[in-house]
């Protein structure tokens, strides 16, 4: 069993979102996710990478292959030092946006993942974790 490994990508420009998508796809294929599950986690990662860029002013994405003793999966942690989110429950609502988007980024990413965790407070940046298991 290969040791879980992690890769950290910078998110500074919209090219980087494409790169995050490609690396998440590679990791999903490696852990053996089905095509639909691959598509779901890649799409979720794309939404969150864009949030990191647009609202967080850039940051990082850490892509990791995880293993809980039998089951494998992909976990991605997005971190930025941006303004943070004052009210997470409002931000999680479908259609809520401050940036002119569709407001599906956070809520959609949660629906497309098996695990979802968000931590943020005003002035302290935002950290979002998603994971999808095989």
């Amino acid at each position: 069993m290969p040791a879980p490994r992690s890769e950290v990508l910078e998110i500074r420009a919209s090219d980087d979102i494409v790169r995050v998508r490609q690396r998440v796809r590679t990791a999903s294929v490696e852990v053996g996710l089905g095509l639909v599950d691959q598509t779901k986690i890649v799409t979720a990662a794309s939404e969150l990478a864009r949030n990191t860029l647009d609202y967080g002013g850039g940051g990082t994405a850490a892509i990791e292959i995880i293993d809980d003793g039998g089951r494998r999966g992909v976990r991605i942690v997005f971190e930025d030092d941006g303004p943070g989110i004052p009210d997470i429950s409002v931000a999680m609502r479908d259609g809520y946006t401050t940036g002119g988007g569709l407001g599906l980024g956070l809520s959609g990413a949660r629906r497309l993942s098996n695990e979802f965790d968000i931590r943020s407070s005003p002035g302290a940046g935002t950290r979002v974790m998603i994971a999808r298991w095989k």
Partner: peptide, 13 residues
């Protein structure tokens, strides 16, 4: 593609 369509619906779009 089917996988894309399923994902978009799940995304809420």
């Amino acid at each position: 593609r089917p996988a894309v369509a399923i994902t978009l619906v799940e995304l809420g779009l």
